[in-house]
Each structure stands twice: as C-alpha cells, then as structure tokens.
C-alpha cells in the first residue's frame, strides 16, 4: 500500500458568470512510497497546490480518485496521522502560540493529558519554546512559518504533506528545516513536499514528481532522473603527445586544451569506456589528474523536459 495514491485525477475549475472551464490538473496519476521523501516540482500554475489541496480534502476532484494509506481522501478519517503544511501559515491571530497548538492538538485528538508535553516538544524542535505566550500576530513571518511546522509535527504524524514549506524562511530557518526533514526521514516518516528550489529536491528527496501544465511529465527516483542527465566523463591530464591524442581519438574521445594550465581535458561520452582511456594514457606515459563525471543538474534536466514538451 502507498502512502499517497493519485489515480487518473482531473480537476476543472469553473470561473465567472459563464462558468468558463479552467483545467488545473489533467488525468494525473502517481504514488508516494511509504517512508520516502518525495519532491513535487513544477512551474507556477502547474497544478501543484491544487493537487495538494485535493489530497488535503480542501478541493474535490472532478474525476479520479485520491487515497491516503488506502483510504479515500474525501473522508476526514483518511487524514488521521497526516499533517499538512500550507505555503503561507494561516492562523487565528487572536490566539497565542500555545493556544494555537493546543487547538490543533485537540482537533487531531492528542489525549489532553499529553498536550502540554507534546506542545513543548514541537516548540523545542522548531526552536520557538520561548514564544509560548506570544500572540501569533506578533510573530515575524519566519517565526510563523516555524510555528506552522510545529503544528504539522504535533501528534507525530506518519505522513507530512508540505506545500512550499521553506518559502519566507531565513537561511537559519531553512537549515533547521532541512535538518528536520533528515530527522523525519531517519524516523521512517513519509514526506511529500512541493518546492521551487530544485537544489533542495536534489539534496533531500528520494523520489520526484514533475508536473507541467497540469500533466505529469516525470514520476520516479531522483537518482534515476539525474542518471538520465549523465552525459559523460571529463578526464583531466597534463600535456600529452600527438601520438597519444591520435590513439585516444580512435577510442571516441574529444579534447580541449588549456594552454595556461598546461592541461588537456578529455571528454568520454557516457557510451565510452573511461577505463580503456586510462589504460591508453598510462601506456603513453600520461596520468589522469582529475576524473569528473559530467551531469546535468535537476534544473537543467527539467528545463530540457519542459522544452521538449513544448516543442
């Protein structure tokens, strides 16, 4: 059973007096593995927030089915043990930090005897324990985002669905958040989060789901996607003879000479044999100084996919 399952989901919004049809998500299908961190990527307006809202039960799909741990996401009980964190924190401004957390803890049915301990725990995790009595409207945006995270951690949920969780966070906040994600991964929790920061996705996620204009363009491992972007290997060596270059050229290498440094960069395409190249070099009395795999970044890969889908 998957933590989250989205099966052939379409969402069409109707806007205005004439109820103009605006498709936000079209025939979308993907799954989120239990215990994995899955990134959700796509440009603005791709349908990420709509999809997350459908998982959250805030928006109803026009067609298709969403399941959380095998239960229909339309039913509130499916959201038990699942925490959602929205892009912007939405709080009751009249409440204090501890009152807000207490309210949420009661909603998710944390036993009342455990609420003070649980509130303290999550506040310590997000480094907000000094702000318990502060009114939410008096907190800075970054602190509100931390409180948002604290709220999501209440009751130790097995699955966390996060929409742009790091937007509005300062660098220490981002670091704290990334450490937290790592901790949650170690605890075996499932995380599904959307982000525009592809470096974060590349660094943190096991899997990635890519959306483009409401349609799925990729769903699978981050590693596999990055492997797709592996183009070859650069082997950097010192000066080499003409004879050596001819031998390497026969092996399918391309050359670039850096006169200033006195170095040659030999590019072996991903279909080439790096070991064979190293053998030829050593036979000709030259030795590699550096071996650098050349890969496209996640951002370049996604841009390429976007261009391909447009053309």
């Amino acid at each position: 059973m998957h933590a989250i399952e989205v099966a052939n989901v379409t969402k069409i919004f109707r806007k205005g007096f004439r109820a103009v049809r605006i498709p936000a998500v079209v025939d979308l299908s993907f799954t989120v593995r239990k215990g994995a961190i899955t990134g959700f990527v796509g440009p603005n307006g791709a349908g990420k927030t709509t999809t997350i809202k459908m998982i959250e039960g805030l928006v109803h799909p026009t067609k298709g089915m969403l399941r959380i741990n095998g239960e229909d996401a339309a039913f509130p009980r499916a959201r038990g043990g699942v925490a959602f964190l929205s892009e912007q924190p939405y709080f009751y401004a009249h409440l204090t930090v501890s009152e807000m957390l207490r309210f949420t803890a009661e909603l998710i049915r944390v036993p009342s005897s455990q609420i003070p301990k649980e509130t303290q725990r999550v506040l310590e995790t997000v480094e907000l324990s000094r702000k318990t009595g502060t009114k939410i409207k008096e907190l800075s945006k970054g602190m509100q985002q931390r409180l948002n995270m604290a709220q999501a951690l209440l009751g130790s949920p097995h699955t966390l669905v996060l929409d742009e969780p790091m937007s509005g966070m300062d660098p220490p906040g981002r670091r704290l958040f990334r450490d937290l994600m790592e901790l949650l991964r170690q605890e075996g929790r499932t995380l599904f989060f959307s982000s525009h920061v592809l470096d974060d996705i590349e660094a943190i996620c096991d899997d990635v789901v890519v959306l483009q204009q409401g349609k799925l363009t990729y769903a699978g491992g981050v590693r596999e996607l990055l492997d797709e972007g592996f183009t070859g290997t650069d082997v950097v060596t010192g000066e080499i003879t003409q004879e050596c270059r001819e031998a390497l050229g026969g092996a399918g290498c391309r050359f670039r000479h850096d006169e200033k440094r006195g170095e040659w960069t030999l590019f072996v395409p991903k279909t080439g044999d790096v070991a064979a190249l190293q053998r030829i070099l050593s036979e000709k009395g030259a030795f590699p100084r550096r071996v650098i795999p050349r890969s496209m970044t996640l951002e370049e890969l996604l841009y390429q996919r976007k261009t391909e889908s447009v053309t």
Partner: peptide, 14 residues
C-alpha cells in the same frame, strides 16, 4: 476568505 479554515478542515475533521 483568510483561509484559516484550512487548519481545521484539512485535519481529520468533517
């Protein structure tokens, strides 16, 4: 309008 409702109906609350 201010979306504070998300914090309630996004939980296991009908």
């Amino acid at each position: 309008a201010t979306k504070t409702v998300y914090g309630v109906v996004g939980r296991p609350v009908s």
